[in-house]
Amino acid sequence: MKASAFAYARATSVSEALELLVVHGESAKVLSGGQSLMPAMNLRLISPEFIVDIGGLTELGGIAVERGILTIGALTRHVDLLKSTEIAAHAPLLTQAVAHIAHPAVRNRGTIGGSLAHADPASELPACMITLGAVIIARGPLGERRIAAEEFFRGIYETALLPHELLVAVELPVAPEGSTHFFHEFSRRRGDFAIVGLAAQAIVRDGQFVDLRLGFFAVGDRPLLAKSGSKLIGVPVTRTVLSEACSALSEELSPMGDQQATPAMRRYLAKILLARCVGSLLSRADLGLGGEE
């Protein structure tokens, strides 16, 4: 379980990193926290010939809030997200979600840029990005592109990034006044990738949803901003309404099977999750735990 031989360069600036990517083309890979890349290389699932280590690029770090926009540099590590007071204040959903990523050792090295560029459909952060309406900033030799999170994720480990582009930062609108959130995932063990997960943000007024954004993950080849959430907005939520939303959700999902769950089980658990999310956001125990009852 040793990676095959590769050449390595530690970039000293974003422009140098970009130059290296242009020169080495498809045979190069960016190394950020290494928590997804290194296992894949050690298992020889991939054998890049050239590694561009961006770990030393301070220009890619940092969390800042300005004019209602929270900007997070690509190199921000999971542990920094978890501990950041800005994130806790302006994107509390993210703080809650990050605690579900792996274990401290992985969170100490893994980065937000790496997680989003890697685009594992079972990852927490990509789903949070679509729920929170993030913009992903990519920089290539020709300059920057701004990509809406919903457009960014294209499939399993597939994104809108071009081979010689770097993900440099994400921008999030700060959580609106009066918004609440819900995060939960079903995973076999604490820290495991989710069987099904949901990152939701909502505005609730007088017991009704004024806004509800539901970012499901591990329910298809990419995170899903569920349209069925709209059925719950602006109406009194009854068991029937909830049940209809759950059925509509089921239509939207295209879950895959793996070691932990069949597609049917994922579909089923997604509905349970939606019911629990709605019950929790509306503080309504009466909505029941079961998705279908």
Binding site: L43, R188, R189, R190, G191, D192, F193, D258, Q259
Partner: peptide, 24 residues
């Protein structure tokens, strides 16, 4: 250890083969 009907061990790694961890 999950084998398929062809005798392939399908979860020969620490992600898919779940050992008990302290959290549980």
């Amino acid at each position: 250890c999950v084998y398929d009907e062809r005798g392939q061990l399908t979860n020969a790694n620490m992600v898919d083969y779940l050992v008990p961890m302290p959290g549980e």
